[in-house]
Computed example of a mutant assay.
Amino acid sequence: MADNGRGRPADPRLSSRFMQATLDLLASEGYRAVTTAAVAGRAGASTASLYRRWPTKQALVSDVARSLTLDALGEIDSGTLAGDLDQLITRKRGLFDQVGTALLSLLAESCHDTELRAILRTEVIEATDQHLKAMLRRAVLRGEIPEPRNGAIETLSLSIIGRELLMQALDPAPSYGDADAEVALILRALS
């Protein structure tokens, strides 16, 4: 999150309200409705306060995407690959239940907006790839799986992101089924 360092420090609660307002607008009205004025209005703050944190709409959306990815993937290390995958899938499902509609809105708009596409590629896809690489590297070092083949991490990343998003698009209250079955399938594919 940007802050120019002038004046009093940015209130983290207000930053959180801006991010939530952004998610709410994405979910209810889509990416085009996310304007600095609309976000500030929904957060009950001034646009000047928003601009002190994020100089552009794209910077705000990038920060929101980064935060969502970190919420889903950050600090997962259960000691086993099966445990890590179970935590990842459980967190991801909870996240998509909360913000799946907003993510679908971003994906749809990214087809027509190269800057948004780059944000999603960097903050969601590449960040997910990096977390999965670390997770799989630990599993290889523990002897749980062989070294993944070229392209395996990217394929796994897209599968992990895509499955629930597609389910969210087709049913706003999807029934995901048992995470154990998904974990078993991934482990089988990696073995």
Rank of each mutant, 00 (worst) to 15 (best):
Y176G: 03
I160W: 03
L120G: 07
A152M: 11
Y176A: 04
T122G: 05
L170Y: 13
A173K: 11
E147H: 14
D180M: 09
R137V: 04
A173I: 00
I153H: 02
E164D: 15
L170W: 13
G177Y: 12
E144I: 01
A152T: 13
L166E: 06
Q130A: 15
A179T: 14
A134P: 06
L166S: 04
R117P: 08
D180G: 13
N150D: 14
G162S: 04
E126K: 11
R121K: 07
D129F: 08
L156Q: 03
G143W: 06
G151C: 07
Q168N: 07
M167D: 11
E164F: 08
G143H: 08
A179H: 15
E154G: 09
G162V: 01
P174H: 09
L120N: 03
V140T: 03
A127Q: 14
D171N: 13
L120D: 05
L165I: 01
L141P: 01
L141Y: 08
H131G: 02
P174F: 08
I125F: 15
P174V: 01
I125S: 09
I119E: 02
S159R: 11
V124F: 09
G143A: 05
D178P: 12
G143Q: 07
V140L: 00
T155F: 15
D180Q: 14
L156I: 01
